[in-house]
Nucleic acid binder design. Structure first.
Length: 914
RNA sequence: GGGCGCUUAGCUCAGCUUGGUUAGAGCACCUGCCUUACAAGCAGGGGGUCGGGGGUUCGAGUCCCUCAGCGCCCA
């Protein structure tokens, strides 16, 4: 029990061993029987599966700490608290990593072929895939490691197939040719969410298209009617002007469109324009999509290279002409002069050619959002292509309703609006990817033309019997499998015990960036396949930034490696620091250039806990400790005070955990532990712990053990290691049931009986007195080696005698060796406490009367100001009649108290004058 | 273009949901202490017209409007 503890916490010497002990003790594992047979209330979190290739970064550190805090807290509450870990195969991201490896060997995936390439990715994943999960252990994550899942596990493959086929059968998955977002580097389609807009300074070019001679009259009258975008070229031909940010796409134009009600151009509809550089003639059509207010009110239409234009073509019958290759070069369908050019080279070439022909009307600077591939950053090219899609509208309905009716709630609350807005405007989801790494689309094509969509690989065509079926070459969007995670991890579609016990889950904690990618889709799938929401509450955590406010990122090199923090300062230090900063709805800033100081707060706190525990263990010794109940009659005011404060701290912590206000949990406990237990209670109890009087000593020992026991429990979810280490060494009161490890010790509830406002108020008076004495000593330079006597008079009934009886303690706290309850005589320092008690500190020969007068006068002035404010309020008839009675009453008490304080202070001041 | 958020101490931020305490914390700063749990500590202190303006109210950091600056999301 009393083995020597180091005066400085060394996290490395306790954390890894402690974690191992928890794991070996089976504390992380929750079998279905805990719920189904023992009837325990489940609490379930499924981890946002990190990419299998990922290394832990601070965002993971934060998110997984948040989840672990919740999981540990609920576990202590007795819930069957299950946290399911796992990783995501991360289609594009992983494929890219392996492709880069190949590139360094001078190879391309096509050199290996599909099968070999996929084998190579598997080998890579098997070799490195567990890394991030191992790293999670270092930060203390109490996941059920027996349930680790990977989105390409056999079970999960079955789930994906089931969902695909089922949605197909319901008519919610379809294949079609549409404009999709295409990454010309990854050579795959992307969903709208995967094409990330980035504000870019570019240009809006204005190009002139000659109008067909047959419409010269219409053009002239349009110009005369004020249409500035219509004009005449030097050779006499009329032209119209269109604008574009991507001039190279004009080679694929198949029309020009105007707004149907736009009178300026009505006469031109049905006429034709000559498409420069191509020798083609294109029609002028009317379509409601055109905004007559924007630019010239005429737009070029490039149906194969722009989503809106594609829709215009659908309504107006314009042709589709694809002039680009998959890797964004101009194709053979482009005019010969441009073939083979890369798209941005083509842009320059087109502009030069237009300029040469006198058809470039000019350009304006233009800032607009340019979509980039979320994996490789390449500018996304809208491309006409045949892909698989999910119809989202029907799926979105129940998921939208779930938010509206509160079945799913969000923290911070404003995300509810964001979520609903997206859901209300949801668009179909392109789910096919032209990749090799992922869930292969379960669709086969027969030479006879039959399409087979099946849960099991078919061996023959059900229509013609042919055996040479060809599977769709594409794989599914990674998020297609991630969206099933809340139930696929429990074995769905098999209806086993796990699914019964643990679905639906409770909390989903993740980064706001993937609200649409992942969270929204999980909710939709939950309703579609399980008939209910996958979790009740969505917690969207902060963004971790560096000290300049920039998001931490690999490319900026401003990240902090959580493992480095753990190594140097400990997991507790990291956890406390980030949780205490994780105020709802705000970001976290950490100095990546000085990790020690960034996490100093957490490190210092962990060390403080350690030392408080060390002191307690040394002082308590090995003798048996009696249960608190047995010494209840012997408790002193400070015992009752700290127990009352403990009850308050426990209540606050629980309430704040329930509301996901983790930073308030952390800070509240910090102040309770450091500011109240350490700064006051431990100081007060020191002498009693060494007392020869058994009654005094045992009351102190029992209280100290009880307070530390509960305080360590309360702190455990946030700083699990140091708390568990100390708790395991605390002497256990006889006859009280203590679990083997803090990780499963019951959460302190029902401490309300210890609440005692009167005790707290009286203690506050004592505390104020001590602080005042220290202040006066300091003010007059009375060194700590010098003891003083004080006079205390007035104040609440019994205050002065109570202070006098605390002689020993006052000596320790403020070097006071005499307390008189009679007014003092002579020269000294005066003060009036907020509770009205008067304090006199005789300082003959030390004090400067002038200075004391100035000090007291300043004090009185400050209080006067406050008193005036209170009086003004009370004299205000409207305040007295309108404000709630208790507010008025409080104000009266405040005024009376201030009045007394000021009055006494002025009396003293008058005494000094004499 | 549409939507959302932020602006409080030198710095980083709480507090605003539900209006009422002398507006808090950490860091930084100043002063004194190596007091046998902790110098990663202890004690004391200075520092804020709560972005500007207007409104509602007996009462506004908190609610409403508006302006300015900053940021994010969607198109």
């Amino acid at each position: 029990m009393s083995q020597e503890l180091s005066p400085r916490l060394d996290p490395r010497s306790i954390e890894p061993a402690r974690y191992r002990a928890w794991q070996e003790g089976g504390h992380f594992h929750v079998p279905a029987s805990a719920v189904l047979e023992e009837g325990r209330d489940p609490f379930v979190i499924v981890i946002p599966p990190p990419n299998v290739t990922a290394a832990l970064h601070m965002g993971h550190g934060l998110n997984n700490t948040v989840q672990d805090v919740l999981i540990r807290w609920r576990r202590m509450q007795g819930r069957a608290s299950l946290w399911v870990p796992g990783t995501d195969h991360a289609g594009i991201a992983t494929q890219n990593v392996v492709e880069r490896q190949l590139a360094s060997e001078g190879l391309h995936r096509h050199d290996l072929g599909r099968e070999k390439f996929v084998e190579r990715v598997w080998a890579f994943v098997e070799e490195t895939g567990g890394t991030i999960l191992e790293q999670l252990k270092a930060i203390g994550a109490s996941c059920d490691w027996e349930r680790t899942r990977f989105t390409l596990d056999d079970d999960l493959v079955r789930a994906v197939r089931e969902v695909f086929v089922s949605l197909y059968e319901k008519g919610l998955i379809y294949r079609g040719e549409y404009i999709i977002n295409w990454c010309p580097r990854c050579l795959t389609a992307l969903s709208n969410e995967e094409a990330e807009g980035e504000e870019t300074d570019g240009h809006l070019w204005h190009i002139r298209y000659p109008i067909g001679d047959e419409a010269a009259g219409a053009a002239e009258s349009a110009r005369d009617a004020g249409a500035e975008s219509i004009g005449q070229l030097p050779d006499g031909r009329w032209y119209l002007t269109v604008s574009t940010t991507r001039p190279e796409t004009m080679l694929g134009d198949t029309g020009v469109a105007v707004y149907p009600g736009d009178e300026r151009y009505a006469a031109l509809v049905g006429a034709s324009a000559e498409l420069p550089l191509t020798g083609r003639t294109i029609p002028i059509v009317a379509d409601r999509h055109v905004d007559p207010e924007f630019g010239s009110g005429m737009v070029k239409v490039t149906p194969a290279h722009d989503k809106n234009d594609f829709e215009i073509a659908g309504r107006t019958g314009l042709d589709l002409l694809d002039v680009m290759t998959p890797d964004a070069h101009l194709s053979d369908d482009a005019p010969e002069a441009f073939r083979g050019l890369e798209r941005f080279e083509a842009r320059e070439a087109v502009l030069a050619a237009l300029e040469a022909e006198g058809l470039l009307a000019g350009r304006d600077p233009h800032t607009h959002s340019v979509p980039h591939c979320y994996r490789c950053g390449t500018v996304v090219e809208p491309r006409l292509s045949e892909q698989w899609f999910v119809s989202m509208k029907p799926l979105a309905e129940p998921a939208l309703e779930a938010s509206r009716d509160g079945s799913v709630t969000f923290t911070p609350a404003h995300w509810k609006k964001v979520y609903e807005h997206w859901m209300e405007n949801i668009q179909d989801w392109c789910i096919s990817r032209q990749l090799w790494w992922g869930h292969r689309i379960p669709v086969w094509y027969c030479p006879c033309g039959e399409t087979i969509v099946a849960r099991e690989d078919p061996t023959a065509c059900p229509k013609c019997g042919a055996a040479e079926l060809e599977q769709d070459p594409d794989v599914l969007d990674t998020w297609f499998s991630s969206q099933l995670w809340p139930f696929s991890v429990f074995g769905w579609p098999k209806e086993g015990d796990d699914l019964k016990a643990f679905y639906p889950g409770h909390v989903l904690s993740t980064a706001p960036e993937i609200l649409f990618f992942w969270v929204a889709r999980m909710i939709m799938m939950g309703y579609e396949f399980m008939g209910e929401t996958p979790f009740r509450h969505v917690y969207l955590h902060a963004t971790v930034r560096d000290k300049y406010g920039r998001k931490m990122s690999k490319s900026l090199g401003n990240g902090i490696d959580p493992l480095e923090v753990v190594e140097r300062l400990g997991a507790d230090a990291m956890r406390y620091t980030i949780v205490s900063q994780a105020a709802v709805g705000t970001d976290i800033s950490l100095d990546h250039e000085d990790v020690d100081s960034a996490f100093a707060n957490g490190r210092n706190f962990a060390n403080k806990i350690w030392n408080a525990g060390r002191f307690a263990l040394m002082s308590l010794g090995d003798a048996p400790v009696r249960p608190l109940e047995e010494v209840a009659g012997d408790l002193t005011p400070e015992d009752r005070w700290i127990l009352s404060r403990l009850a308050g701290a426990a209540q606050d912590a629980t309430r704040n955990l329930e509301r996901f206000r983790l930073h308030e949990v952390a800070e509240g406990l910090y102040h309770f532990f450091w500011g109240e237990i350490c700064d006051w209670y431990l100081e007060l109890v020191k002498s009693r712990l060494a007392s020869d009087d058994a009654t005094i000593r045992e009351a102190a020992r029992s209280t100290l053990v009880a307070v530390l026991d509960s305080a360590l429990r309360l702190l455990h979810p946030v700083v699990p290691f140091v708390t568990a280490e100390l708790w395991g060494r605390l002497p256990r009161p006889e006859g009280v049931e203590w679990p083997e490890d803090l990780i499963v010790a019951p959460w302190p509830e029902d401490l309300g009986a210890w609440r005692d406002e009167d005790v707290e108020r009286r203690f506050d008076g004592f505390r104020a007195l001590v602080v005042e004495v220290r202040r006066l000593r300091k003010e007059y330079g009375v060194g700590e080696g010098q003891r003083v006597g004080i006079h205390v008079t007035g104040g609440p009934n019994g205050f002065a005698p109570a202070i006098a009886s605390e002689g020993l303690v006052l000596d320790q706290l403020a070097r006071v060796d005499r307390v008189e309850t009679e007014p003092g005589e002579g020269v000294g320092a005066h003060a009036v406490l907020p509770n009205g008690a008067e304090l006199f500190l005789p300082l003959e020969g030390v004090i400067d009367v002038e200075r004391e007068r100035a000090r007291m006068s300043g004090e009185a002035q400050k209080l006067d100001g406050l008193l005036a404010g209170a009086r003004k309020r009370l004299e205000n008839e409207k305040f007295v009649s309108n404000a709630p009675a208790e507010v008025v009453e409080k104000e009266r008490e405040k005024a009376a108290q201030l009045d007394e304080q000021v009055r006494k202070l002025r009396e003293k001041l008058a005494g000094l004058e004499g």
